[in-house]
């Protein structure tokens, strides 16, 4: 199934440079409908009223971290099915396992390539459409 380019995506990272990089990469992949937040505390209310289709989040952020945001989304009945891709420098095995257990849909370690981002997004939506 083809990806919907109108998909509304929220990019959460405390570094504005990384948000710009991800935003540009997503634009190259055809996704232009993106918004940004700098941590979980800002992201959560946006997600609650924003009708987002996809969340790309960092882990290590002051305020609310990505793992806490992930847990909060999964715990919210309105948002629990939102696909989440984690893009983070956190590279410990126990961290990746913890993210998987919390219900992440994909995990990318920084530094990453444009191709990796495309691959993981394709895979996430392949699986979702396959199951649906």
């Amino acid at each position: 199934m083809e990806l919907d380019n109108e998909m509304k995506i929220l990019i959460v990272d405390d570094f504005s440079t990384m948000r710009r990089i991800i935003k540009n990469l997503l634009r190259d992949l055809g996704f232009t409908n993106t918004q940004e937040a700098d941590d979980g505390t800002t992201a959560l209310p946006m997600l609650k009223k924003g009708n987002f289709d996809f969340l790309v989040t960092d882990w290590n952020m002051p305020g609310m971290t990505g793992i806490d945001l992930l847990k909060a989304v999964r715990a919210d009945p309105e948002l629990s099915n939102l696909p989440i891709l984690m893009v983070t420098a956190e590279a410990k095995r126990e961290q990746i396992v913890a993210a998987a257990e919390a219900g992440v849909n994909g995990y990318i370690v920084k530094p990453f390539t444009a191709n990796t981002l495309k691959e993981k997004i394709d895979k996430i939506f392949e699986r979702i459409h396959g199951e649906g």
Partner: peptide, 18 residues
């Protein structure tokens, strides 16, 4: 959260790439 792993500094159970 521990931040990016630094070669030669962060030992232990760290993945080596994607």
């Amino acid at each position: 959260a521990e931040g990016p792993s630094v070669p030669g500094v962060d030992k232990g159970d760290v993945v080596q790439g994607q």
